[in-house]
Design a protein around this nucleic acid. Structure first.
Lengths: 234, 234
DNA sequence: TCGATTTATAACCATTGGTGACAAACCAGC
DNA sequence: GCTGGTTTGTCACCAATGGTTATAAATCGA
């Protein structure tokens, strides 16, 4: 039994090592050529094995991406924190992290695609969706930072989460359009559009108050009911 | 020879009819279950044929989607025009068509995904990208409308295409995030975020002037060189 | 009615993700 | 160092997919 810290018994060691090799190879290949274009047999060949061995470490191809997606989102959080810590004024933090988010996306376009716009598993769960528990910290930081700014700068919409969403959805949406090519016309100067968007949004949130929930027309929207925990069920 | 208007000879008629049947069946099935999940054999079965017959009308599966994508974008243009014609003041046209774009996307989420975020063909061309010639009219309308507004409302950034892009990328990006689920937290009230975004952007474009191309840091952006005409080459 | 052309099919192909039987490598306990 | 159970990796296999081709059947002009 010996549940204590007995040595990883070499066997476990090697098993974990192989698992990491699979992940490393998959990560590189997915990033280079996209999830769909990469074959399990190619991944295995890359590290000198047969493709069947992968199934001793992952239930299926999708779960490899799921794990890598979790890593990627972790990097986005790190990126956010590293930038945020550099600026004292919350307004500067907001601007810098907004730029940082977009830069991260354009620096890793294929990862971004795989994570957020990649394949769904059998249950219709997207790889990026699966780790909502991991994505949550990221968006919580976004929202919290915006609240900080709203307070520090005395914005009219103090603690309105709708306004916070407006900011970050616009930023995140712009990042998406810049990464998924061909959706909108090519940008002659990406940086300029980013700066213009940030400036416009900033001017906007300063001027616009929280909208009254009345005055808005019909339509309730597609539920917010959490459908977590379809997670690992393959 | 007889190049004139000889009767379509029944044979041509039937051929076109079958082609339309394929398109109709594919359209419905793609919209219901997504491009990847639909099989050529299923499409053929739906209209009472074998899958091989499809290849007499389309070079491959992707080209079916390409043709349907062109239809979809055509509908978006129609939708735009139908809304625009209802409003005299250009500002109202801008607001209404912005709402209309988002509504169209959320009303046809799977089509939207297939067209703009769907599969690439062998040359790395996305289905929505392929019909840039068709998408162009849509975006030209967007930009032109914004210029009209800028002029009519005396915005500081009269004819700056960067500002126009800022508006439409924010709207289009929001539509994207609302359609591709799981990317951002579910919205408790979609309509509210849409209205808040429009209000914020409007306040922003009124206040913010055109940014000087200086003052912006480094980075040139990913070229604007047109890579059209990889089009039909399968 | 005849003969060329079109149309649809069946049989086939290579590739893919995924599975299961089996043999080799491994690592205890003696 | 041997022995026997366990782990590890492979091979052969499966069903399904997009795509191709030879061929039979339907069509239609003459």
């Amino acid at each position: 039994m010996e549940v204590t810290s007995t040595s990883p018994s070499r066997r476990v060691e090697r098993k974990e090592k192989l698992r990491d090799e699979i992940l490393a190879a998959a990560s590189k290949m997915f990033a280079d050529r996209g999830y769909e274009a990469v074959t399990l047999r190619e991944i295995a060949k890359e590290i000198g094995y047969t493709h069947a061995v992968i199934y001793q470490h992952f239930p299926d191809k999708w779960h490899i991406l799921a794990e890598l997606s979790s890593e990627t989102i972790g990097l986005m959080v790190q990126n956010f924190d590293a930038i945020a810590v550099k600026h004292l004024a919350s307004k500067e933090r907001l601007f810098a992290t907004s730029r940082g988010l977009i830069q991260f996306c354009t620096a890793h376009p294929q990862q971004f695609r795989n994570v957020f716009f990649g394949p769904e598993n059998r249950n219709g769960v997207r790889a990026g969706q699966y780790i909502n528990d991991l994505g949550a910290p990221l968006f919580e930081r976004f929202v919290q930072l915006f609240f900080d700014v709203a307070k520090e700068e005395g914005l009219p919409s103090k603690d309105d989460i709708v306004v916070a969403h407006t900011w970050w959805f616009s930023i995140f949406g712009l990042a998406t359009l810049m990464v998924i090519q061909g959706v909108v016309p090519d940008l002659p100067d990406q940086t300029l559009v980013v700066e213009q968007t940030i400036a416009t949004l900033w001017a906007g949130v300063q001027a616009v108050p929280r909208l009254p929930k009345s005055a808005i027309s019909k339509r309730s929207g597609r539920s917010s009911a959490s459908k977590q925990q379809q997670l690992l069920s393959t």
